[in-house]
Simulated scan of single mutants.
Amino acid sequence: MGSFLLRAALTGLALWIVTRLVPGIDFVGGDSTPARIGVIFVVAVIFGVVNAVVKPVVQLISIPLYILTLGLIHIVINAFMLWITSWITDHTTHWGLSIDDFWWTAIWAAIVLSIVSWLLSLIVKAD
């Protein structure tokens, strides 16, 4: 349970950093700071569930594209996972993650999220 909470918190931190660095992606909802932190945490959990359930299926189906693009399709798949998370939170709760445009906003967000998550994992492993 502790590792799940740590992973969700790190994912939430990474998503928050992405919203600060990439224009067009932001969190919606949460009027106060504790409510905003709650929104970020719930979005991180939803993003984790999407990555655990949907991403393996999409990766399996897109094996030929991985070969054809030499793995670059992975960036598009990560952007698609962000977009699915945004869609889920928008259509079920009307708060959560908001992405203006899939093609460039979600692609840049996926790239930045990968880098930030990698850096955070280095910091956590060092402790």
Rank of each mutant, 00 (worst) to 15 (best):
M1V: 09
M1T: 07
S3A: 14
S3V: 10
F4V: 14
L5Y: 04
L5S: 12
L5A: 14
L5K: 03
L6F: 09
R7L: 13
A8R: 06
A8N: 07
A8C: 13
A8G: 10
T11L: 12
G12D: 01
L13P: 02
L13V: 03
I17P: 06
T19L: 06
T19I: 04
R20G: 15
R20P: 04
R20H: 11
G24S: 10
I25Y: 10
I25D: 04
D26I: 00
D26M: 08
F27H: 06
G29N: 00
G30A: 02
D31T: 08
D31I: 07
S32W: 10
P34Y: 08
A35N: 07
A35D: 12
R36N: 03
R36C: 03
I37T: 09
G38Y: 11
V39S: 04
V45Q: 04
G48A: 09
V53K: 00
K55I: 11
P56Y: 12
V58I: 15
I61A: 14
P64K: 13
L65P: 05
Y66N: 05
Y66W: 01
T69G: 08
G71L: 08
G71T: 14
H74P: 06
V76S: 08
V76L: 10
I77C: 00
I77L: 04
F80E: 03
M81E: 09
M81Y: 07
W83Q: 07
W83E: 10
I84Q: 08
T85N: 04
D90H: 05
H91E: 00
H91I: 00
H94Y: 14
H94F: 14
H94K: 11
G96Q: 02
G96C: 07
L97R: 02
I99C: 11
I99S: 12
I99K: 05
D100L: 07
D100Y: 02
W104Y: 06
T105L: 04
A106Q: 05
A106Y: 01
I107W: 01
W108S: 04
W108P: 00
I111R: 00
I111N: 01
I111Q: 02
L113Q: 02
S114G: 14
S114I: 00
I115M: 14
I115E: 12
V116S: 14
V116F: 15
W118C: 13
L119A: 15
S121P: 05
I123M: 11
I123D: 06
